[in-house]
Amino acid sequence: MNTQIKFTLNGSPVMVEAPGEISLLRLLRDHLNLTGTKEGCAIGECGACSVLLDGRVVNSCLVLAPQVNGREVVTIEGLGQQDGAHSASDLQAAFVKYGAVQCGYCTPGLVIAGEALLRSNPMPTRAEIIDGIAGNLCRCTGYQQIVDAIEQTALQRAERTQQHAAAKVQE
């Protein structure tokens, strides 16, 4: 039975007809052709399907598609700056720079988890970063460089915030 699902996806309103019993992951991949969000286990253990739902990280394989009605979903495709041409977010760029990407299959989910962490805790300790990505499995990296990438992004964002504040004071 198809049902109508209306929500905000990566900043834009969408309306889609889809079976009511499918997961948000299947809705994104099979009905909206957003394949950046990956399926690794389909039981909420691996985090490869992580997306932001109203700013919180969720396993999209465990969310029923109709549950996102009226809510805001951000996927890996929506994280970059949307000013004109799509470009990578600072966190996405840091993942590349610090060697946090290998096979890349877990990467979208880990970037999403890292982004959710930084939004709720802008200056996390290394231990807090590890805690924040504990729901995301990676088989390639051993996590060290992923933690580096999130840590360095936090530092850069803090520096930028300080610069903005200083600029405001000068004004």
Binding site: L34, I76, G80, V96, V101, G104
Partner: peptide
């Protein structure tokens, strides 16, 4: 150096 396939993978564009 940056991994050549890094950006596409980090941005969700890499096709498996």
């Amino acid at each position: 150096a940056n991994r050549v396939d890094g950006p596409d993978k980090a941005n969700g564009k890499a096709k498996y």
